[in-house]
Design a protein around this nucleic acid. Sequence first.
DNA 1: GATGAATGAGCGTTCATTCAT
DNA 2: CATGAATGAACGCTCATTCAT
Lengths: 191, 191, 191, 191
Amino acid sequence: MQKSDKRDEIVRAALELIAGQGFHGAPMAMIADKAGVGAGTIYRYFENKDVLITDLYREIEGKVMASLSEGYATERPIRERFLHLGAALLKYFISSPLEFRYVEQFHNSPYGTACRRDKIMGKGGGCNAFKELFEEGVAQQVIKDFPLVILFDLAFGPLMSVARDHILGFVELDDRLIERVVEACWDGVKR
Amino acid sequence: MQKSDKRDEIVRAALELIAGQGFHGAPMAMIADKAGVGAGTIYRYFENKDVLITDLYREIEGKVMASLSEGYATERPIRERFLHLGAALLKYFISSPLEFRYVEQFHNSPYGTACRRDKIMGKGGGCNAFKELFEEGVAQQVIKDFPLVILFDLAFGPLMSVARDHILGFVELDDRLIERVVEACWDGVKR
Amino acid sequence: MQKSDKRDEIVRAALELIAGQGFHGAPMAMIADKAGVGAGTIYRYFENKDVLITDLYREIEGKVMASLSEGYATERPIRERFLHLGAALLKYFISSPLEFRYVEQFHNSPYGTACRRDKIMGKGGGCNAFKELFEEGVAQQVIKDFPLVILFDLAFGPLMSVARDHILGFVELDDRLIERVVEACWDGVKR
Amino acid sequence: MQKSDKRDEIVRAALELIAGQGFHGAPMAMIADKAGVGAGTIYRYFENKDVLITDLYREIEGKVMASLSEGYATERPIRERFLHLGAALLKYFISSPLEFRYVEQFHNSPYGTACRRDKIMGKGGGCNAFKELFEEGVAQQVIKDFPLVILFDLAFGPLMSVARDHILGFVELDDRLIERVVEACWDGVKR
DNA sequence: GATGAATGAGCGTTCATTCAT
DNA sequence: CATGAATGAACGCTCATTCAT
């Protein structure tokens, strides 16, 4: 509990600093400061900065996955499931701007290069929801017959861009707009 | 010619290093080394690292614009023009992987933050092709009635993602596939 | 005590190097080396080189002031007080050649330009002794009716020169000579 | 003539830059620029920066000497000759602020350390006017019996300080004030 | 002769990491 | 366990000097 306490403070501080200023704006000393711990303490919980950064990324990834599967019903029609996942993803990021900015920073960085494609689909972990959805959709000829990666691009590319523009203040998304955006994505992938 | 020689070497070296390793993986000394010039020489051509980086960005931007307007016919129907632009963009990046990676690095960095939205559309210079296209399309009710930014997201989000996946080797794009991808993007934005 | 240890070593090293070789002969790395600390350590104690330099200056200034006010009796006649202050200043610098050389370097440097006139008189702090002395002397018509600055020049100009010549070995000052020099200065300012 | 032309431009540029910004504010490239010559050209006239700087110093020294001997009459009484020299020196510097600032910069710098005492008295060259004056004055018991160096300090210390304060704008000297200041200096050295 | 592009050693400063307390 | 002072390699940048033209 005590231990987790400090760990959480560190992770939180790293999240805020990196989301706000990028990796270059988040020296270990500053993270420690913001977390209210000694600089050396970070190294009790994370072997080094890289580990801290990738661990934090994976934590966020997990939370995203969790939010996607919430209320997800495998038995619903493909279109409906797509709309659910897309909206859930968009809403999650919109309501967690720090996490979103962090994920973006992470992906465009040496850290993120390695795990590029594992991105949202988390090839190792639990939630292959999207993957299954696409494969099923292609099989049923409901979704365009593209390689899986391209389907991901068609679906996530716009969603991430829209989320970014909202967070940066270029658009103001509301539920209606979110819905329409996800539908537009569906138009992109559907046959 | 002589003069351009060194400048070009420097720009080339910066492009390769930054595209390959990101900004932090391209110290000035390494750029100089790779360019085969002394460290100080870079500063004859660029006031500082920031200027080098943004100049190089603008150079690439210019080349992208040029490739987009090539063969672009304002009098063709909107859909056709969209397909032209999309395919041209995709092809340009696919044939210039370093430039593509560089642009990506740039956008996710303190440098690129300022010009986020000017991105491809280059608000200052010549080619507002996309912008005009979207506005015209919305007016003619051929394109979904979204804020401009979102239309950009719907169109570029997937294109950039697809380009990245090709460059990273996750898909192998050919002309047919490119065409189909751009059509899918069109499905996303068209009414 | 521990803390002051390193700080003191740094300050001492800076003093010696700058007094001996001027500012350009005292790179941070060399100061660190001479102080027996790592280069980065200096920055724990001083924000940057400028701060180190001006802090050190103010430290010396303080010690000078202290030595001037020692045994200074406001109720003694003006001439006597002048002789006291002059001799004290001269003796202090003669017994602290490094401090003297440092102060000289400082005054002729971008750092010292700002505080030119505050020089010895330390307009902010305690010891406006000289200023008051001169003003009183002028009012009582004991001292020549010159602008204050010129009185300073007449008094300090020779004192600093003499101190420098002693330190550089051009004369050997003893108590008797000091006394006579200060009396000569008095002859310069007195009516 | 051609050759001297460039040399003069270089020297002038160096004088202005160094007087204005100190040595650190006068890189060779900037001097060359201001002189309207190529950077390499300076090295045709001066072996290196040190030589340029000391040559320029000696040039100024020569001009000071010349201005001192102008109208100097060895047969006049000592006091009168002192007043002449003092006023001439003060006036010269006041009317040549660049030269004055340069000399000051020079003296407080590694360059000047070597030639400290040669300063105004120019031990090698022509004009030992002051030296002779002082020696004569001491012999005639008109001037205080101090070592020569100290007499220099008593006379020049204040003069240089006053010149500086005028140039920096802390006092406004006019002929009357100059006269009085030099007389005060005389009071300092006279028996 | 004159040039100025090129050089690279050297500067001030930062920051991930260690380790004595 | 936790700390934070200490470290030093590495960074971006400057500038006296050289040398091909």
